[in-house]
Structure formats: structure tokens, C-alpha cells
Amino acid sequence: MSRPLTSLAPGEEAQISKIHAAEALYHRLTALGFRSGRPIRLLRRAAFRGPLHIRIGSTDVIIRASDARCIELVAI
């Protein structure tokens, strides 16, 4: 069952199943290592519905919730 990246709890890990982003965002995400099949972990999210801090491979990124919604995950 797939769910968006925004639904992860801090510390939780899952696997990317699908990225349905517009082209610019898609390119950026791919370059940062987002690819289906890869594990991804949510480290924390900022207060007041701020960005998410996630770890993918050896890269840490922050991403706004609005952008994170386009990344779908499945349980590992």
C-alpha cells in the first residue's frame, strides 16, 4: 500500500515507490538521489508545518511538504 512521504513519522523509514513531480522538481530530486526502490528516512519536521528533514543514502535534504507530497512510498 502506498502513502506519501509527508505521512512518515520522524525516525521512520520506507522505500520510494513512485515520484510524480513536474519536470524541474523531478530532475532535482533525481540528482539528489531520489529514485524508486531506494530507502528514505524522515529525520524530523519543522514546526508550523515547515519543511521535512530527510535522509536518502548519504545525503540529507530539506524539502517543503508541498513538494514532498509527490513522493510515494511503500513499506520496506
Binding site: A24, L25, R28, L29, T59, D60, V61
Partner: peptide, 11 residues
């Protein structure tokens, strides 16, 4: 800005 806000956090 049309650029996605996806910023790397370096160590």
C-alpha cells in the same frame, strides 16, 4: 521563484 525548494544539508 520557479525553483523547487529542496536544499541539501551538509554535515
Amino acid at each position: 521563484s520557479e525553483e523547487p525548494f529542496v536544499i541539501e544539508l551538509p554535515p
